[in-house]
Write a protein that binds this DNA or RNA. Structure first.
Lengths: 254, 254
DNA sequence: CGACACCTTGAAGAGGTTCAAGAAATGTGG
DNA sequence: CCACATTTCTTGAACCTCTTCAAGGTGTCG
């Protein structure tokens, strides 16, 4: 049986329980994910000024949209997002899925306008970090400056990985890579490394992976037939992680 | 007739003529491409300190390789590069082609190691900009800080565009988009907007576009049959730019 | 509880790949 | 400077993966 309650709030962590609504990064339990580590007390105090406000986003609504003026980066506190770009002709491409502790909005810096949509796939809350303020503070706090650079560089490296996936992998390999990546990120946030609840549709997975939704569905079924995963709608249990790894690392022709 | 001499050194620009070997950004004719604009004289003077040295890279050799320690960003002065990532199983993916004025090495920031190879596709020269120094200076020169952010953001936005291409376009659309992009970048550097010399093989184009080299070749031939381009090996003349644009903006099913 | 969104599965078809062979260009060494 | 080896490019034919179209099933939310 797959248990629906596996996702997104690990035991002992209640960022959202009504009592612990702290606005300070210094006491945020996600700090290690989105802020630099090893800061001095006074640096930590400054860092607290990065976050101006919080903002709640209802499932299905956008945190920002393509074309909107850029002003802030956002650190996800709770919830799950997708980002997607849209071509002139209307077709769009999911460029990523983001979860707690991850930063979105970097695309807006270059032209002071967002170039993609960020849509909440479940009710979410983000920390609003005005980019001006990040700039000021990172001139004072060395570690923050480097941290911002690292976050942007990480996004670039991640994107290159997606290009590799889209450019050279077959459907099975793509889906295997996708599952492994998701479960690894969830695991590093305290969740199961074998069980997850997908917050996105087959179509959204397909868009991200450069596949049609039917192909995603069929590939899930195929994995299930092979005993690699157990799939029941959005509930996925990975039964054979090594098999998924083998799929991803397999030469195209082998 | 396609003229071989169209590429890479526009009339009146001789960055490499032996006399004008200036190490100062402030007097570099590529400055507007890789450095912030609208600086005060004293800011300009500081900016000159960004570039430590120059480095020449012979065609076919690497500026840096996956796994090597990261220390500097590089501004391309002359020449043409490809960057590519390699999967564990050995297959690789070209993630981009870079020309004069563009910055490479951003991938190395996050883990202090490069995560891709940067290989010169023709003899090249780069300005070596130690990342430490960029950090120091961008704390002093506001515009430089923002400029660094913008460069990284631009790379992220570019990567998202490539994802859209890889995830949702068909072969013809991909090649059309590729040609339009290349020619546009060359044009903004003073070259023809209809004629270009490819510095990469069909295989490298294919890797970048997620296609096999045969498909690239066939698609070129197809464009030629349609009278959209004239192709003779690496010499390409675009005869019908609007047709290419239409291809790119066309709905998948139309 | 009913409407709607989402998922699964089948069958036919298209687009791209693979394999193969030959042609054209490029580079190398004599 | 030429001949030869090598790399790169083109083209054809068969094949395969993924897509498209279609229908039915399942789950969810107001």
């Amino acid at each position: 049986m797959i248990n629906q309650t596996v996702n997104l709030i690990p035991a002992g962590v209640h960022p959202f329980d009504g009592h612990s609504m702290k606005v300070a990064c210094s006491s945020c339990n996600l700090r290690e994910l989105c802020m630099p580590v090893g800061l001095s007390p006074e640096e930590l105090a400054k860092i607290d000024e990065v976050v101006a406000t919080r903002r709640k986003i209802k499932r299905g609504t956008a945190l920002f949209r393509n074309g909107e003026p850029f002003g802030s980066l956002y650190a996800i506190r709770t919830g799950f997002f997708k980002t997607c770009v849209t071509a002139e002709d209307g077709r769009d491409q999911v460029t990523g899925f983001q979860m707690a502790g991850e930063i979105i909005g970097l695309d807006g810096i270059v032209n002071d306008r967002h170039t993609c949509d960020a849509v909440a796939l479940e009710d979410a809350e983000v920390c609003v970090m005005p980019f001006e303020r990040i700039g000021e503070l990172s001139r004072e706090v060395n570690a923050l400056q480097h941290h911002v650079h690292r976050i942007m560089s990480r996004e670039i490296v991640r994107d290159h990985g997606v290009m590799l996936l889209l450019g050279s992998m077959r459907a099975e390999e793509r889906l295997a890579a996708f599952l492994l990546n998701l479960v690894q990120r969830l695991h590093s946030r305290g969740f199961s490394s074998s069980e997850l609840v997908l917050r996105m549709t087959r179509e959204e997975i397909g868009s991200y992976l450069g596949l049609k939704l039917e192909t995603v569905s069929r590939t899930f079924s195929h994995f299930a037939d092979e005993g690699i995963v157990e799939v029941k709608q959005r509930h996925v249990r990975i039964l054979d992680t090594p098999a998924l790894r083998r799929l991803v690392n397999q030469q195209p022709g082998v």
